[in-house]
Measured scan of single mutants.
Amino acid sequence: MASQGTKRSYEQMETDGERQNATEIRASVGKMIDGIGRFYIQMCTELKLSDYEGRLIQNSLTIERMVLSAFDERRNKYLEEHPSAGKDPKKTGGPIYKRVDRKWMRELVLYDKEEIRRIWRQANNGDDATAGLTHMMIWHSNLNDTTYQRTRALVRTGMDPRMCSLMQGSTLPRRSGAAGAAVKGVGTMVMELIRMIKRGINDRNFWRGENGRKTRSAYERMCNILKGKFQTAAQRAMMDQVRESRNPGNAEIEDLIFLARSALILRGSVAHKSCLPACVYGPAVASGYDFEKEGYSLVGIDPFKLLQNSQVYSLIRPNENPAHKSQLVWMACNSAAFEDLRVLSFIRGTKVSPRGKLSTRGVQIASNENMDAMESSTLELRSRYWAIRTRSGGNTNQQRASAGQISVQPAFSVQRNLPFDKPTIMAAFTGNTEGRTSDMRAEIIRMMEGAKPEEMSFQGRGVFELSDERAANPIVPSFDMSNEGSYFFGDNAEEYDN
């Protein structure tokens, strides 16, 4: 993207840094990872977990959730003011799984939030270390993106479920800051804005008074975040219109849905970061690795190297396929839920299948599930090659597409044709070009129609051997075009429920 120079890199967003050079960025990201790792080690000690239990991804998720809940100030305040039966607002906890007599047992633990905050700050040299908290939120978000298709949420806001490739980060909490905003897809931002506008339509006082002023500035800020994701002048001009509207209503909703559809071809720039579970960072720190000293990046080879040398386990339900569970977590670790499966298959070195073909449910185990038949197995999170994460949407291309997802959002900077089903997408653009945004709409449609099938995206960008740390010898991959490109292809993934 041309304006790259004016933006802070995501590592800076990730670490609240002012302008830093590459070495400083690597050190501050490393410091953040160190903090998460030290916190995780301490929690495993508190909970008396064995090494194996500490490497269980379900335990990692519970521990991450506990610290996120302990620092969720708004919710904590709300819980104190609106006490609900049987919930102690000062405590947080969740299921911890232990191996007892050759069987997995679930144990519900409860801790004072104050105590968890103390352990977290102690692991982070006394700081609140917001960057580390956001990092864990993005890992949870990436896992949700890989596990669930947001059909219901899309339909509720009037969008087409086939636009799911635009929904990265749709389950990120509001408090995820600049680093969170960077990884949100165009569809996620559109959905947040539509929800806001709908509230304004239904509630006369939404934009009024002292609160209304705050609401208005939040609305304009979200519009600017979305505008910054678009790469064409016409899309940005249309966002200006939406932002400046005196009284946002149905016309703005129409414009936003139009823009979301246009992003299936004229893709937005959305950041991709490899955020790993805390149970990967903990053992690495415990083994003596100093992330701050060595430096770390979320968008280069580092996460690949770390996963190459990590042992992570997962509980497996009786009829689940461990290899499929591994694929789910591998995609989440690489922030690749909406990437082209052919690119992923090449990088991973084994075939990556669409969601609907995987015999696996989510990673988390519900409290009512029976533990008797639970097994555990090693997650295979290694890769054959590594590639640089991208934040450009890439230019655009036609490809055989599917009944489910009709476009992709690249996660890796790797040369390819970008699949999208042009006739299906263009069919949504018939007729409606009147109104105050008509010239911009016409211009956007013209650009979409001009998108050429034979153009290559990320020209000359390749993948790298894991021994090639400096990215000196790019390998331009070859793809098996007979395979499906979309992950949520004609899909039956479970729906995400809060």
Score class of each variant (00 low, 15 high):
Val280Ser: 03
Arg213Ala: 04
Leu133Cys: 05
Thr147Cys: 13
Lys351Ser: 06
Gly93Glu: 10
Val312Gln: 10
Ile138Ala: 08
Ala427Asn: 13
Asn397Cys: 11
Met191Trp: 06
Thr146Leu: 02
Ser438Gly: 15
Ile201Pro: 02
Met222Phe: 15
Asn125Trp: 05
Ile475Gln: 01
Ala70Phe: 01
Met189Trp: 06
Thr146Ile: 03
Gly282Phe: 11
Glu53Asn: 06
Phe488Ile: 09
Lys325Tyr: 05
Lys214Ser: 02
Lys7Phe: 00
Pro453Ala: 08
Gly300Glu: 10
Leu166Ala: 03
Phe291Lys: 13
Leu108Glu: 07
Asn483Gln: 13
Ala178Ile: 07
Glu192Asn: 12
Asn319Ala: 12
Arg65Ser: 11
Trp104Gln: 08
Val67Leu: 07
Arg208Gly: 03
Thr15Lys: 00
Ala428Thr: 15
Ile301Pro: 05
Ser438Phe: 05
Arg391Ile: 04
Leu193Arg: 00
Ser274Asn: 12
Thr62Gly: 10
Leu379Gly: 03
Lys113Tyr: 02
Pro354Asn: 11
Asn76Ala: 08
Lys103Glu: 11
Met447Phe: 15
Gly356Met: 11
Phe429Tyr: 15
Tyr281Glu: 13
Glu53Asp: 13
Val186His: 13
Trp330Pro: 06
Arg461Val: 01
Pro89Ile: 03
Gln241Asn: 06
Ser176Phe: 07
Lys214Cys: 03
Arg150Thr: 03
Asp439Trp: 02
Glu469Val: 13
Cys279Thr: 11
Leu344Asp: 12
Arg382Met: 04
Cys44Leu: 13
Pro277Met: 12
Ile388Glu: 02
His140Cys: 09
Arg246Met: 03
Gly93His: 04
Gly462His: 10
Arg106Ser: 12
Val476Asp: 00
Ile116Phe: 04
Val363Lys: 03
Lys293Phe: 02
Phe458Glu: 01
Glu252Gly: 06
Pro89Lys: 02
Ala218Phe: 10
Ser478Val: 09
Ala336Ser: 11
Glu80Thr: 13
Gln364Trp: 02
Asn142Phe: 09
Asn76Ile: 15
Ser269Glu: 03
Leu166Glu: 14
Asn368Asp: 05
Ala278Lys: 05
Gly362Ala: 10
Asp127Ser: 13
Leu256Met: 15
Glu484Trp: 03
Gly5Asp: 01
Ala278Arg: 02
Tyr97Ala: 07
Asn321Trp: 05
Gly490Cys: 02
Glu73Ile: 14
Gly86Phe: 10
Gln42Phe: 05
Leu47Pro: 12
Leu47Trp: 06
Ser377Leu: 12
Pro419Gln: 05
Gly180Ser: 07
Asp468Gly: 03
Ile41Cys: 12
Glu494Trp: 00
Arg236Pro: 09
Ala278Asp: 11
Gly288Gln: 10
Leu381Gln: 14
Gly54Tyr: 03
Arg175Trp: 08
Ser486Glu: 01
Cys275Phe: 09
Gly54Ile: 02
Tyr281Pro: 10
Arg221Ser: 08
Phe464Ala: 03
Ala123Asp: 06
Ala22Phe: 02
Asp491Glu: 13
Thr360Gln: 04
Gly187Lys: 07
Leu172Pro: 09
Arg236Met: 08
Arg117Gly: 08
Arg470Asn: 00
Phe464Pro: 15
Ala218Tyr: 06
Ser478Trp: 13
Arg26Ile: 07
Pro477Gln: 00
Leu226Trp: 12
Phe346Met: 15
Gly35Trp: 04
Val100Lys: 02
Arg208Asp: 00
Gly212Tyr: 06
Glu81Ser: 09
Lys227Thr: 10
Thr188Gly: 08
Ala366Pro: 08
Arg204Met: 06
Leu381Phe: 08
Gly200Trp: 09
Glu114Ala: 09
Gly158Ile: 04
Pro423Met: 04
Glu114Thr: 04
Ile33Phe: 08
Ala70Glu: 09
Pro277Asp: 11
Arg19Glu: 01
Ile201Ala: 13
Ser438Asp: 01
Leu418Trp: 00
Arg216Glu: 09
Lys98Val: 09
Asp439Asn: 12
Ala471Pro: 01
Ala129Asp: 00
Asp112Gln: 08
Glu454Tyr: 12
Thr6Ala: 12
Val352Glu: 08
Pro318Lys: 14
Phe420Cys: 03
Ser50Ala: 15
Lys91Asn: 05
Tyr496Leu: 03
Glu114Gln: 12
Glu73Trp: 08
Met239Ser: 09
Gly86His: 15
Ala131Thr: 04
Glu220Gln: 13
Asn334Thr: 09
His272Val: 01
Arg121Gly: 07
Ala471Gln: 01
Met371Glu: 00
Pro354Ala: 14
Gln20Trp: 00
Gly228Ile: 05
Arg8Lys: 00
Arg243Pro: 01
Arg361Lys: 12
Asp145Cys: 06
Pro423Thr: 13
Met13Lys: 11
Leu298Tyr: 04
Ala427His: 14
Leu166Pro: 02
Asn473Ser: 14
Arg195Thr: 11
Asn21Lys: 15
Gly5Pro: 11
Ser486Asn: 07
Pro318His: 15
Met196Trp: 04
Arg204His: 09
Ser165His: 00
Met13Leu: 04
Arg446Trp: 00
Asn124Leu: 02
Cys44Ile: 14
Gly54Phe: 02
Gln405Pro: 04
Lys77Arg: 15
Ser297Arg: 03
Ala27Asp: 00
Leu108Gln: 12
Phe304Glu: 06
Leu266Cys: 09
Gly126Asp: 03
Val463Ile: 15
Lys227Leu: 09
Leu379Val: 15
Tyr148Phe: 10
Ser482Thr: 12
Thr157Ala: 14
Arg436Lys: 10
Ile445Lys: 08
Thr157Cys: 14
Arg117His: 10
Gly169Leu: 06
Val242Glu: 11
Arg150His: 06
Val285Lys: 11
Tyr52Gly: 12
Thr350Arg: 05
Arg436Leu: 06
Gly288Ile: 10
Ala2Lys: 00
Ser326Arg: 13
Gln122Ser: 05
Lys48Glu: 02
Arg436Asp: 09
Gly180Ala: 07
Gln409Gly: 03
Val463Ser: 10
Ser383Leu: 00
Thr92Phe: 08
Gly54Arg: 11
Ile197Leu: 03
Thr15Asp: 00
Ala332Pro: 04
Phe464Ser: 04
Leu344Ser: 13
Gly362Asp: 14
Tyr10Arg: 00
Asp255Pro: 08
Gln405His: 01
Ala337Ser: 12
Asn76Gln: 13
Gly126Ala: 13
Ser392Cys: 05
Asn417Cys: 03
Ala471Ser: 02
Val343Tyr: 02
Ser326Gln: 07
Cys275Lys: 07
Tyr40Asp: 12
Leu47Asp: 10
Tyr10Met: 06
Pro419Leu: 12
Glu454Arg: 00
Ala403Val: 09
Glu210Leu: 12
Gly404Cys: 08
Val29Cys: 12
Glu292Tyr: 02
Arg446His: 05
Gly394Phe: 02
Ala181Gln: 15
Ala153Tyr: 06
Ser3Thr: 11
Ser359Pro: 04
Val312Cys: 15
Glu115Gln: 09
Arg243Gly: 05
Gln409Arg: 00
Ser9Lys: 00
Thr62Lys: 01
Gly288Cys: 13
Leu79Glu: 05
Met374Lys: 10
Asn395Lys: 11
Asp112Trp: 09
Arg19Pro: 05
Phe488Val: 02
Ala366Cys: 02
Phe291Asn: 02
Arg317Thr: 05
Gly393Tyr: 02
Ser367Asp: 04
Ser377Glu: 05
Asp240Ala: 13
Lys87Ser: 06
Ala182Phe: 10
Gly126Asn: 13
Ile445Val: 14
Gly158Tyr: 12
Thr134Cys: 14
Ile257Ala: 04
Leu79Asn: 06
Asn370Arg: 07
Ala442Ile: 15
Arg65Glu: 10
Arg391Ser: 03
Thr23Leu: 13
Val100Thr: 12
Leu379Met: 15
Ser326His: 11
Thr151Gln: 06
Leu259Trp: 02
Met43Pro: 01
